[in-house]
């Protein structure tokens, strides 16, 4: 598949949050503030790309040779946890500035189902190493796009006269639904 199309498909058409409904927890939880949204987006972009590669390597180098693909989910979870944690530790010491931006969010990503989801999807679609990385990156871009859009929207909603009953999370959930509706418009643009 064309790499550009792969990116668009991963980012917009098959948006990880609004079309595949993965990673909803950070999407709702970290969209209160735009700076957090930026931070989490960057961290996710970094981790998704990295774990897509790591998961690919584990799949082809360990699971398939050992004929243990039934352990895939477990193995991926472990691999993701290790990757994220070590990234955090290293970054904290070596790049404190970057850590200030991403640090808080890295542990959150460990439990982000989008990360595992993308790793599993990569295997399902039998992507190559480069395709896996690209798909991970594209999905992260899609995640970043909707997260930043949504956080800006929530800031606007905080300045609107929302009925008291719906203030905060209720209206955010409703709005997220409408946002998913908007993304439905992209369906069919890239066949995947």
């Amino acid at each position: 598949m064309d790499w550009g199309l792969l990116l668009i498909s991963a980012a917009l058409v098959n948006n990880v949050v609004l079309v595949q409904y993965l990673g909803l927890c950070p999407f709702m939880g970290v969209s209160n503030r735009m700076d957090s949204a930026f931070g989490l987006s960057l961290a996710t972009a970094f981790v998704l790309t990295l774990t897509s590669v790591v998961a690919y390597l584990i799949e082809t180098l360990i699971l398939i040779p050992l004929d243990a693909v039934w352990l895939r989910t477990l193995a991926f979870i472990v691999a993701i946890a290790i990757t994220v944690q070590s990234t955090e530790l290293i970054m904290r010491k070596t790049a404190p500035l970057l850590y200030q931006v991403l640090g808080l969010f890295l542990p959150l990503i460990t439990t982000n189902c989008a990360v595992l989801g993308i790793a599993l999807l990569n295997v399902n679609r039998s992507h190559t190493l480069l395709e896996s990385a690209l798909y991970g990156f594209g999905a992260a871009m899609g995640f970043a796009l909707v997260l930043v859009m949504f956080s800006a929207m929530r800031e606007r909603l905080a300045r609107a006269d929302i009925p008291e009953l719906l203030q905060g999370t209720p209206i955010a959930l409703i709005t997220a639904g409408f946002m998913a509706l908007a993304f439905m418009g992209f369906s069919g643009i890239v066949n995947s």
Binding site: I58, I62, L63, L66, A68, A75, I82, S86, L89
Partner: peptide, 21 residues
């Protein structure tokens, strides 16, 4: 084989994290 592989993976990961921390 799978269990051993997974155990090895987790142990290695645990050790890695420990040294890194």
């Amino acid at each position: 084989a799978g269990v051993i592989a997974l155990t090895a993976l987790t142990t290695a990961g645990g050790l890695l994290l420990q040294t890194l921390s």
